[in-house]
């Protein structure tokens, strides 16, 4: 209980800190949103009027605390680029990205474990070099290139889905998930390759340990030892990696979202940054921070369940 409480406090504090840092960094690095909005039709008086209407004439700290107060009362502010409430703007995009990430994650899990086990089985055999080379290739290929390949092969040549016509998630959830699946696979492939490599090396390392040798020499079936003992002990690094992956696929999705024309959060974040749409960026950054921390927490908890030795720290 104490552990959970501590985690929650950490979460809130981290989110506040992240929001402050991103707010500050944004103000330091980038220019004036009013200049970007007005472009070449800017005149000093027009700029002034716009700044006033957006509250940009206030000192930095006041702007930040205003935002923070709004955040805690559930008011994420009004987007500069759309003049609409941020919450309403980002909600549909979050749903889309969430579905894509979960699909992608499911693909990663479903594929990684069998392939990882298989890979450690064949270690040293003739098939091995072929497998590791292929794995290396999958790890190296950029998601951008994969996306183009997949849209071309499955979208344009085979017509299994229609690139550029993403169905509305609310109106046609099945169609939308079908569309997202292709994007999810593009994101998943390099990650699967990483997980496989991680599993392979930890399992091979574990198999060389004394307890395994003892177990096998006492006549236990090799496969059974692998499944019942080795796998469990090798899971920890993989779960940690999966936790990181969960956080990373959100950012990995940005390019994929662009190529597939998916109206997701990653694309929206990049565009909002270039539009200097602070309210949207702030909201998304905090949500991302939340996501990253949650993924880490869940991975930790899982690890403690799998490997009881880790529970000591939690007391």
């Amino acid at each position: 209980m104490k552990y959970v409480l501590r985690r929650i406090v950490t979460l809130v504090l981290t989110m506040i800190m992240v929001s402050f840092l991103s707010f500050a960094a944004f103000h330091l690095i980038s220019g004036d949103p009013a200049v970007v909005i007005l472009g070449t039709s800017a005149t000093p008086e027009r700029l002034e009027a716009l700044r006033r209407s957006m509250g940009l004439d206030q000192p930095f700290l006041i702007q930040y605390f205003r935002w923070l107060a709004g955040f805690f009362t559930g008011n994420l502010g009004i987007s500069y680029s759309y003049q609409q409430p941020v919450a309403a703007l980002i909600m549909p995009k979050l749903q889309v990205t969430f579905c894509m990430v979960m699909l992608s994650f499911a693909v990663i899990i479903i594929c990684s474990f069998p392939i990882g086990l298989f890979s450690s089985r064949i270690a040293g055999s003739r098939l091995d070099w072929l497998h590791t080379t292929f794995n290396q290739l999958c790890m190296a290929v950029p998601a951008f290139f994969l996306s183009i390949l997949v849209t071309y092969v499955f979208g344009i040549a085979l017509k299994w889905f229609r690139p550029g016509a993403f169905p509305d998630l609310a109106k046609n959830p099945v169609g939308a998930m079908h569309y997202l699946f292709y994007a999810a696979v593009c994101i998943a492939i390099p990650r699967i390759a990483m997980c496989v490599r991680m599993m392979r090396s930890t399992i091979i390392g574990e198999m060389e340990k004394n307890y395994v040798r003892t177990a096998i020499s006492r006549g236990n079936d090799r496969g059974r030892v692998l499944r019942r003992h080795v796998l469990k002990n090798s899971l920890v690094p993989t779960i940690t990696l999966l936790g990181q992956t969960m956080a990373e696929i959100v950012s990995g999705g940005i390019v994929v979202e662009q190529v597939f024309g998916i109206p997701g959060m990653g694309r929206f974040l990049v565009l909002s940054i270039s539009n200097k749409d602070y309210p949207v960026v702030q909201a998304l950054v905090v949500i991302l921070a939340f996501w990253v921390i949650m993924a880490g927490t869940v991975a930790d908890l899982l690890n403690q369940t799998v490997d009881t030795r880790l529970r000591l720290g939690g007391r």
Binding site: F26, V281, A289
Partner: peptide
């Protein structure tokens, strides 16, 4: 953890600016 995450945040903001 806090430090690492603050860095992530800063990084995000940083990437962002160049992302434009």
């Amino acid at each position: 953890g806090i430090l690492a995450l603050s860095m992530t945040g800063a990084l995000l903001a940083g990437c962002g600016a160049s992302g434009s």
